[in-house]
Amino acid sequence: MSVLITAVATLGAIGAGSAAILYLVSQKFKVEEDPRIQEVQDALPAANCGGCGFPGCASFAAACVKAETLDGLNCPVGGQETMDHVAAILGRKASVSAKKVAVVRCSGTCDERPRLNLYDGASNCAVAAALYGGDTGCSFGCLGLGDCVDSCAFDAIHINPETMLPEVVEDKCTACGACVKACPKDIIELRKVGPKSRRIYVSCVNKDKGAVAKKACNVACIGCTKCQQVCPFEAITIENNLAFIDDDKCRLCRKCVPVCPTNSILELNFPPRKETPPAPKGEEATVTA
């Protein structure tokens, strides 16, 4: 019996002693933290993707609390709703930013862009890009080895095995920008989602001269300036034989799409066109929409 009592007493004493030490230490080393940091952090999506430019949600929360205004601070994953919530907690105003989504600016499928050699190195775009221009005649286009897929924390981008090009799952994409950084060819761009997810963009990044680009890929932008001429809003610029549509200026009129001789301008999520373009009325309607 005495053994039992001794055991219980000893263990109890050790426990009590340890508890006391832990309490004292935790008091001594207590870090005074602004309680709002935790609140803000709770409002964030906890994806820790780094899309905001900070190492994780916690440091983003700390930055939000510390900053004078919320200008330039944006959680791409949570979007406007989350930032409004954060603003409410801090009693500030969130800057308005349009929701964005990743677009892949290459349409060079296996059919459109014939493979000229076989890549046999490590299955990694960055390794291949450091080695050479790629397995097609186009040294700007997608290598199809999936660095973007590996970088995505949201399972929102996949390589289509038929085209060997990545495809973005719009609903899952949070525009965190990880794939943009991961792509060694700078093919992926964050663009405004647009009304009803409607977007128009040049799906090519080839800066070669027109003839060279066309020889390498049927759907390459050849820098012919036709789209630039037809655009009523001066949204299209051409630099280094490559067209670019500014999504701040583009009003989604779709005039540039049919004039492109190589079909390198893509339109997404639009209703099907009427068979006989041009149909001025329909287009004007889209402009106002």
Binding site: R115, L116, N117, L118, Y119, D120, G121, A122, V127, A130, L131, Y132, D135
Partner: peptide, 8 residues
């Protein structure tokens, strides 16, 4: 045949 390309 297409040439095989790989790093050294």
């Amino acid at each position: 045949n297409k040439l095989i390309v790989s790093p050294s």
